[in-house]
Structures are given as structure tokens and as C-alpha cells.
Design a protein around this nucleic acid. Sequence first.
RNA 1: GCUCCCGUGGUGUAGUCCGGCCCAUCAUCUCGGCCUUUCGAGCCGAAUACCCGGGUUCAAAUCCCGGCGGGAGCACCA
Length: 494
Amino acid sequence: MSIIDEVIDEVNSLDVNDLKSYLPKKKKQAKAEPKELPPLDKNEKVVLRFAPGPSGPLHLGHTRALALNNYYKKRYNGKLILRLEDTNPNAIDPEAYVLISEDLDWLGIEADEVITQSERIETYYEDIRKIILKGGAYVTKSDAEEWRELKRQKKAHPDRERDPERQIAEFDSLLSGDNGIVVIKTNLDDPNPALRDFVAFRVVEDPHPLQKTKYRLWPLYNFAVAIDDYRLGITHVLRGKDHLNNTEKQKWIYKYMDWKEPEFIHYGLVSIPKTNLKTSKIRQSISDGEYSGWDDCRIATIRALARRGYSSETFSKYWEASGVKEVDIKFSWQNFDAMNKDLIDAKSKRLFFVSEPCEYIFSSKKTITKEAPWHPDNKKLGNRVEDIISGSKIYLPNADLSKIQDTSEIRLKNLCNVKINGNTLEFSGFEHKKGIPIFQWCSGNRKIELYYPDGTISQGLVEDNIDKLDNTVVQFERTGFVRLEGDKAFFLHR
RNA sequence: GCUCCCGUGGUGUAGUCCGGCCCAUCAUCUCGGCCUUUCGAGCCGAAUACCCGGGUUCAAAUCCCGGCGGGAGCACCA
């Protein structure tokens, strides 16, 4: 009998309960401490940047780059530069320069420096001259399609081979009125067609919102970015995977200039479901009158989310938890909302909200006092108190009424029991009875409109004492968290 | 089509570099139970994952090969 059979027999003979003692022990959990994002390679002061195009205010999609860059800035006591990339005169909303700064302020992110690319055009001119002189760039006035077709075939355009002095002369002619482009030479044999020779400058005659007609030759994205990242001392470029090819292009500029490259980190793409983030589309809908503005509660701009009552801290928490991996991820409103709820729950006061109110008259021998806590757990917030005299109007939510009999006894939450008799609510005691339906109610006629992000609007009544809660986040019990704004309330989440 | 990146529960994430302490972490969601003057929160419990197939190895989420799947780029936009 082999040793294996012996062991099998022995094990089979054991009692089930004895066997349990052989199960591996559950390891006790190691740590509840929040996990950290991976460290950065660093030998020097960390300098990061956030670089949006000023085409509109910031939206949810921008907050990942912002949160991650700001995280590392704080972790390494580094520096964060806000760089406004306004080198396409046709794609600029002049208001965006201010809107973006406001959005950063609201998020609680402080840029140590603000740079506007359109103020740095001379720098770009100087550096491209150097690259041309080194033979790293050329000017062509050829037809765009012809030039592109040659690239597709991995062939050099004749203009590519001219000597640097000639290229400089051509460059000057672009500054003084000719049409053409400046191209960075890369490897024409590159198997990736996206990486063969890319345009560094082009002519745009349209006036720039800030520089007006001062310039006509404008740098394109990859050129301006590479120059600025170096000139501004950026040590770590942290951005989305969609920039993978751009990184390869930008490296050519570092190579020609003989510059040390920053560390490039690319995180995966985020898809944000059921959310329109396209600035141009939102702008169109605003001008069509469909949306009330950049802060319409149906869109996912920072200002709209702020108006709904999200805490700015939620954004950084969410993105830090999502990490910097190159996997593409799906944004989860559910997880995001759960994090936000964690932050606001303990400090949000509770209010009754009565939708589709039905009017009743309260009847009792004496005045009854409502004494309801502002928060069920956080007793420090105290109570809201209200005297209800016989003959007062009481409003009850229609949806709840439809579930009960006309003559039922119900409990008015935090007040007393009543019997429904026609349109009268007759006092029937204070005793807490099990199983009796409990109703939220309102005595006043304070109307409020509740706006949901899906566009629906619910009409209802709210407790009278909301004035001092204007512009704060409260919880309408059983409905969800909302932010109050005058006679409107914006739905945040459950 | 070409080039590049990436595949762990419904979702996000830890572990992958340096194979074993991983019958796989944490959060959220879902479902029970407790508590509660409805909701929420809290507490207790349950369910759910290593894309597939080969290989290497005593041992594979982890290393190798091949599939499959997802995403991005191929602009005189950013």
C-alpha cells in the first residue's frame, strides 16, 4: 500500500468536525489604513501641471487629472502649475479663463502658478528656430493632402530635405504673411502612422481673444506642451492614456533639444456613463435654452455638481481610490455618491418633505408640540420645535395616503397619533403603537420644487423653518439628500 | 487596416515587477437579520471574481506562448 493510500484512508476516517481544524486559518486583516498611490520617482522637487484648454468650465472628467496631480503635489510637498492651453484661437471661450480658476477654487485646489500659453508665443518661436537649425524641423507650403499621403507611404516630402538656413528663411516668411506649416521630423519608417512627422505650427488668421491679431503663426498642442513642460520645470507628466502617442511625439522635441525627459505616467481612460461631458454640446444646449446655464443640475460640470451639493472632498477621495493604473475604468455614480454620503451624512439636517400634498385639518383638545431632532444620531444639532393648535392645517403626502384606509389611525412623525375622519385628523394619543403607519407632514404651506438630475421636477411642501438652511445640504427624510436654494431644492443622491 | 495599451465579483480596487503566508483585500451594490418615530446611519451575516487554452514548476492571479475581449491613436484640435 502506497503512502498516498495510507494518508487517504486516514483522512477518510476522520470526523468532519476534526477535519475542520485542518482548514487554513483566516488571516486576520492586515490593515484598515487607506492604501497609498504608488510612489513617484523623484530626485528633485516635484513639479506637476494641470493643462486644460480654455473652452469652457471644468467638468467631472477633468477632476481625475486634477485630483491625482494635486495628490502628488501634497504628498511630496511639490508644486502644481495650472497651464491654460489657448493656442487655437478658434476654440477659446474667453470666459473660461475665469471659470476654470473658479472651479479650482471650489475644489479646494490651489495652483502655485498660472501660465497662459498665448503669452509665450515668442518662446515657442525661439525654440523652433533652434530645432530647425539642428535639422529637426522643416517648413512646407505644400498641399495638406499631398503631404499627408507621402507620410502614409513613409516617403519624405521634398521640402523636408532642404538645408536649415533655407528652412529658417521659410519660417520667417510664415511669420510675415505666407501660408504653410512647420513640421517636426520624426522617423518616417515608424510602423505607427500616427507617429510620423507631426505639425508644430500652423497659420491662423482669426483674432485670438487675448492676443487679438498679434500673432498669425500658432504652435500646435504637442509642440507647445513639450516646450512648456521643459521650460516650466515639470518633473512628472501625469495624464490619461489617450496621450500615449502624444508622449512619443513630444519625446522627439526633448531629443532635438537634448533635454532630460520628465517622468510620464498614463492612467487608463474613464468612461462616465449617462453623462454628457462634451463642452461644445453643452454650450449648444445652453444657447438653445434647453439648459439654464453651466450650472444646470442635469449636467456634470463642476459648478452643476457643486450646486447639487456634492462635497469637493469627494472628488479627490474617489480618484485617489481609483488609482493610476493603465486599465480603462467605468465611473460609478453609485460609488461616488456613497463616498459623498459618508462625508455629509452626519452634518446634514433632516427635514420633512411632502410631495403632492393633501390638506387636512388637525383637531385636538389642546395644543400639541412637535419636537423632532435635526439629526437622528447627531443629537448635538438639537431639535426643531413647533406648536400645532387645533384647527391647524396639516398636509400629508398623497403617495402614502393611497396605501391606507380612509378611517385608519396613523402617526404623524414626531407629533402624535391621529385618526383620519374625512378631511380631519383627530388626536388619538401619544403612545407608540407597533405597525401603525408613520407619516411625514407639514403644517405650513411652504412650497418647494425639487429638481432631479434626470430633468424631472417634483412639487411639494417643506417645513417652514428652511430659511436659515438656504444654500446648505439637508436630507429630505426618505427622499434623499438635497441642496436648498430659495424655493428650489436640487436632488443630490439618496 | 496599421500602431500602441489593458483584461481580478455588477462597479472600483489590493495582490502581478521579485511564483508559495491568495480556497484572493477593501469599498460600493445586492440579499437576509438586529436596531431605529418611515429614510439614512450603525451592527451582524450571506452571495458574487483571477478572460480562455496550452506550457514551465513540487507550487501560477503572478512567469512563457497562443487565442479572445475591451480601449485609444492614426488632425494644419486640445
